[in-house]
Design a protein around this nucleic acid. Structure first.
Lengths: 203, 203
DNA sequence: TTATTTATTTACCAATCAGTACATAAATAA
DNA sequence: TTATTTATGTACTGATTGGTAAATAAATAA
């Protein structure tokens, strides 16, 4: 049904594009975190009124979750894509080097929505904090599996511990997000990434 | 004047100890960050009313700054103390291993007030974010100087770059704070610290 | 006792928070 | 035209935010 998107809707036409609005929400949450972004700021940036936002996205939490999905499948798609690299070294290289570029990109907020979007927060926002922690854990688990495969393929020494190596890389990545959010330069992050890569694998 | 603290004050006596209250504030800010801790929560935990808090500490920002000083000179005094260790290895060892224990201590919030107290926030809280970023930068700068000294003392290879090494350790430390705030176990952090130390210095 | 000083309690402030009720405007269907 | 559907703009809710004014309670000084 190619004409399914041309079919005329019944009532008053929407004056905004939900996908565009979702991207705006992603930018704001990315820059200021969950608690640091208010509904008023969101609707102002989107150019719509609050009832439209709630009709389209349900609640602030739901909007954040959708913006987070957008973020994961868009700006940081390279993270999960890195796991497809052919060797452990290439995986880690892509993760660290592309992150160094990404975290200091001039047109986007410095830092990572997953790592710094909600670390400390009030008790009523614990759900969001949990969601982001799960995101980080999922990545670390996937990286562990990838390094186990590398070990099985003889791509990583037998005495290496994939879980500890994965935690090492994940920890570095999270630290890089904090660094970027504090204004560290791209060059400094790249130099540090090179240092880590020149000593891969550490075991 | 040993009797200076016994001299009787003129008006109605204070019913709370400001130092105790400051420690309570430190615990709350440590656990939930600046924005995640409200004045109402602070006064409830202290057992005092708001005017008493404002009379004693000025404002929420001033209270946070004082709690931060308390935190730096108390719970994480080991951080600056680590720089006094005799060798670069011992410095890094103390930093990473003691941090692994500290960040996962059962009686205190998991995580570090300096690293996760305010990473992303609303525009009006940018001052606090700046203050914490400066704290982190001061530490990294001091560590760089310490590693330069180590290099001068022949304690670090000539081709090593102290600034990059310091950023590497600082980044790992910040990442460990994120990990701890997400619930990573002490054992996992210690295993990672060992991995890093077994490969020191990376150059 | 009386005056002064200080800290307390209670009550309040304006602003903002997330979220919603309601009337209206703009489209299609009959 | 008339009915129905959907999204809009305005105005509002109750709760909470950080911060304060004003009256009172408890101490010392005179």
């Amino acid at each position: 049904m190619t004409n399914s998107e041309i079919k005329k809707s019944r009532g008053r036409p929407s004056k905004f594009d939900p996908e565009t609005s979702l991207n705006i929400a992603m930018q704001l949450f990315w820059a200021h975190g969950y608690e640091g972004t208010s509904i008023a700021e969101l609707t102002n940036a989107m150019g719509i009124n609050k009832p439209s936002l709630y009709a389209a996205f349900g609640s602030k939490e739901e909007l954040f979750e959708k913006a987070l999905q957008q973020y994961i499948s868009g700006p940081i798609a390279f993270i999960s894509a890195a796991l497809d690299e052919p060797t452990a070294y290439r995986v880690v290289e892509k993760l660290l080097v592309e992150s160094a570029y990404f975290l200091t990109a001039p047109d986007t907020p410095h830092g990572c929505m997953v790592n710094t979007g909600s670390l400390s927060c009030g008790k009523e926002t614990a759900t969001i904090k949990e969601t982001l922690a799960q995101c980080r854990q999922r990545f670390e688990t996937a990286l562990t599996a990838r390094l186990q495969r590398a070990q099985a393929e003889g791509d990583l020494p037998a005495q290496a511990d994939p879980a500890t190596l994965a935690k090492y890389i994940a920890t570095l990545h999270q630290g890089m997000s904090v660094q970027a959010a504090s204004g560290t330069s791209r060059e400094a992050l790249l130099a540090m990434a090179k240092l880590v890569l020149d000593n891969w694998p550490p075991c």
